[in-house]
Design a protein around this nucleic acid. Sequence first.
DNA 1: CACCTCATTGACTGTTTTGGTCAATTTCTA
DNA 2: TAGAAATTGACCAAAACAGTCAATGAGGTG
Lengths: 200, 200
Amino acid sequence: MMQEVHIPEDKKQRIIRAAMEHFAKNGYKKATMDEIVAAADISKGLIFHYFGNKKKLYLYLYEFAYGLVYDRIVKSFEREDLFERIRESEQIKLAVVSEYPYVLDFLLSVRRETDEQLREKISRVKVESFPPWKETFLPGLDASKLREGIGLEKVIKIISWTTDGLLAEHKDNFVLEDIFAEMDEYLDLMRKAFYKEEYQ
Amino acid sequence: MMQEVHIPEDKKQRIIRAAMEHFAKNGYKKATMDEIVAAADISKGLIFHYFGNKKKLYLYLYEFAYGLVYDRIVKSFEREDLFERIRESEQIKLAVVSEYPYVLDFLLSVRRETDEQLREKISRVKVESFPPWKETFLPGLDASKLREGIGLEKVIKIISWTTDGLLAEHKDNFVLEDIFAEMDEYLDLMRKAFYKEEYQ
DNA sequence: CACCTCATTGACTGTTTTGGTCAATTTCTA
DNA sequence: TAGAAATTGACCAAAACAGTCAATGAGGTG
C-alpha cells in the first residue's frame, strides 16, 4: 500500500491500533475519525495528512491486518503431534492478538460490512475463521493418539474456542505470559482428556 | 417498568428484538432510533409514542433482558450428574438465544457503556458471565466422575465456550434443533474425554 | 542566529444525521 | 357514521460528521 508521506513509526502504530479497535467495534460507518484521532492521541489534521481520507485508512488497515495474520499463520506447521501443533498455532494466535488486540475482530468485522463501494474494494474477504485450518492445518495430522470416539475436527474446534474464551476473559488486562500459562493448563487438561492413556 | 400506553404484543416484540440487536451491536450512543424503527418495521412516531424517548427504551430493554435471562437460569438446577446439569444449563442458554438472539450480547454490552447518566440508572450491571455459575452452579456438584487431573471449573468453562462457539457459528442461520443436535455431539465427545471409563 | 522546510495542530465549514414533534391520516369501536 | 385511538412520515433544531487550512512549532543547515 503506497503512502505519499513518511509516517513516524510510533504514530503510525498508534493510529493503526486505534483505528483497528474502532473499526472492529463499530464498523466502517459508525467509527468516526474524531474518536480514532483521540484514541491515537494525535491531531485531526495529521491523520488526513497521512492517510488522505477515511476510506483509504480503512483499506490500508485491511491490507495491513490481512498480511499480518496470514504471514504468521502460513509459517510453522511442521510438528507432527496434534497437541504440539495446536499449541503452536494457538500461541501464534495469542501472540498476534497481544501485539494487535483487535486484528482478529477487525478482520471478522470486515466481512460484516454491507457498504457496496467498500466491498468492491475488498476482494479478499474470505477469512472464514482463524486459522483456515481445514486446508492448511488438518492434512498430515496424526489423529491416532485420540481416544475412541473423539473426533479430530471437533477437538480442534473445542481448543480454538477455548483460546477465544480465554482471550475474551483477559481482554481488559492483557498479559501475554499469564495467558500462555493459563492456556497451557487447559491444554494439559485436554491432552489428558482427549489422548489415550499411553500417549499422554 | 411502567408503560403509559398499551402496546400490541407483536409490535412490542418486534421493537424489543430490533432494539436489542442494535443496542447490542452498536452501544447506546451509536444505535439510532431510525435504524431500530426500520428494523422493527414501524413508523418513527410510534416508538416515541410507546416508549417516550431513547433512554427510556434502553432502560426498559435492560429490565426486560435481565428478567428474562435470570428467571430462566434460577430454575432447574436439580440434576446431580455434572453433564446432565451442564447439558440442561447450556440448552437453556441456547433456547433463550433462540427466542431473543441478542439478549446475551445486549446484557454484555450494557456493561461496556461508559455514559455516566446511563450507568447511574443501571444499578444491577453485574452480569459477569452467563450463568453466574460460581455461586449457583458449582455447589453440590459431583466431580468424582472426572478423570484424574481434570478440574471441574475448567471443564465447565470449556463447555460454556464451546456453546458460545457453536452459537457464533450458527448465528446467521439459527435452527434450534440443529444446534441442539450438534451440541449433543460435542457433549458426547466431552463426556468420553472428561469422565472416567466406568461412568461413561 | 537567521532562514527554510516540513510536521503538526485544532478551529472552522458545509453537509448529513440525530432524537424528537406533531398535524394529518388511517383504523378501530360502538 | 361519528368520535376516539392508533399510526404515519415530513419536518425541525441541534448535534455530529468528514475533511480543510491558516497558523504554529520543531528541526535542520549555512
